[in-house]
Design a protein around this nucleic acid. Structure first.
Lengths: 259, 259
DNA sequence: AACCAGTGGTTCAATATATGAACCATAATT
DNA sequence: AATTATGGTTCATATATTGAACCACTGGTT
């Protein structure tokens, strides 16, 4: 038993699940063995166990494997853990109705931003972030807000890990990013353009929990051309009002409201 | 290596995840060891690996473990696999607006019914099925529809496995159930009252794929007292119309519509 | 303040267990 | 008919999992 703490075979087997992606929803035994570099027999036994537990499923027709329903079951519980989500949802609905742009709730997890809830714009052209995908914290308003309020040492870690350009406008310079984060902390919100997805603008603000710690970011996101100055100002006002209300409901009393 | 095909330690470790339930969202190391009957050291190593892979997460404050975000990520892909879901969603929306009751899409998987999509009623009092949970096929309209169109040998299997009473009104008599299923096949829909949840009525009909095989059930579900005769008839008509349209979009041509 | 019972976490020798090369049987391709 | 895929199987080997026992720590009881 070496590096990579914990049961090795377990890590290896779970690693197999990671080869299933949006582009490769189905994978054959041989393909998985090739991708993972593991012997077929080994992969096969892992697949058997994974199948028995409902994590994957063999397509009876093609004999190929695909993800099973178990993750759905677990994901349901994961959502339950976030009472946060329940509190926030009605506010998100209102915000979406007021702006008719996609509204998105993100949390930080192990140095990445994860969208745990989103309400899609009714516009024909809209931004729609995948639920659950893990995105870099240095690109895009929703995640920069999360990053800005992390403890300094974690910020340093993340910056040191490198700042890959996600789009042409992603901030890749550590100094620039640090300035951005400082500004976000001072102003209490982030506005970005095309840092994370080309043609997409976003406005984001932090949601604070009882102890004042930032527990999530709430964002209004949409096609850049719809975010003109006037709208940005309007949206920003509504967003800030909303996160204030949410934070209050979560038990956070901002300084200026304390007696 | 004995019964329970596949990598044993993997099955064991994944089994640990099953101890997390709606009531027990957080579990400590000792608790998990106790519940599973495994030695702590063993559980601990599994937890380490699961944590590394994002399936669980240790709450820094309580030191207890809870589910991580990985399942969310996988669940997203699972949903992708169901282009079904995308096709059906707009129809579900319409149905929900027309009825203002919860509308729910279920599929069969390994002898259980799984809700893969639902739109909640706007009513203050509403039925809300958990996404992803695995329910008996013999109780409730949504699942009886799925059961009714399974191959005979699978129906036999499921009946032989036993028909536990989920509520006082669950059909537990094999003969009665077989009659019910026959009726569902003949009429093309199921109407049930309090078979699955006390005080809840449901109307359900099968969605058919290109080859005519039933791929899902679509249901209107809500408090029994709101489902009077008049409404049932109205809902049923709308539901049948909807599943016809969906099945058509999925490429299914009913006999009477073929040239 | 000493105790106890609980917790999360660690150690290490024994052996049960996962491993992987080589092997089928079958189905497409060539 | 030969070739090269595929999913699946076998079996000896030794590695990686196992579990009893042990820490260090915390919070509650007496």
């Amino acid at each position: 038993m070496q590096e990579g703490k914990g049961t090795k075979s377990l890590a290896v087997a779970l690693g197999l699940l990671d080869y299933f992606t949006e582009e490769r929803l189905q994978l054959g035994l041989s393909a998985l063995a090739r991708l993972s570099g593991l012997p077929k027999a080994n992969v096969f036994r892992h697949l058997l166990a994974l199948e028995e537990k409902g994590y994957i499923k063999q397509d009876a027709a093609t004999k190929k494997y695909q993800l099973g329903f178990k993750p759905l079951e677990l994901a349901y519980l994961v959502n339950k853990q976030f009472s946060l989500r329940d509190v926030v949802l009605p506010y998100m609905k209102r915000l979406k109705e007021e702006t008719n742009e996609t509204v998105c709730l993100q949390v930080e997890d192990s140095g990445r931003g994860i969208c745990i809830e989103r309400l899609e714009s009714n516009n024909r052209l809209l931004y729609l972030p995948p639920l659950g995908s893990r995105e870099y914290l240095h690109a895009g308003a929703s995640r920069k807000v999360l990053l800005a309020f992390l403890p300094e040492e974690r910020i340093a870690e993340i910056i040191d890990a490198g700042l890959p350009a996600v789009t042409a406008k992603t901030v890749t310079d550590p100094e620039q990013l640090r300035r951005d984060l400082k500004l976000i902390r001072e102003k209490g919100y982030a506005v970005t353009e095309e840092e994370h997805v080309e043609g997409v603008s976003a406005i984001s603000a932090p949601v604070r929990g009882r102890d004042g710690k930032v527990v999530a970011s709430l964002s209004i996101v949409g096609p850049a051309f719809r975010f003109n100055r006037e709208k940005k100002e309007k949206y920003l006002e509504k967003l800030l009002q909303t996160v204030r209300e949410i934070s209050r409901e979560l038990g956070y009393l901002p300084a200026e409201q304390r007696n």
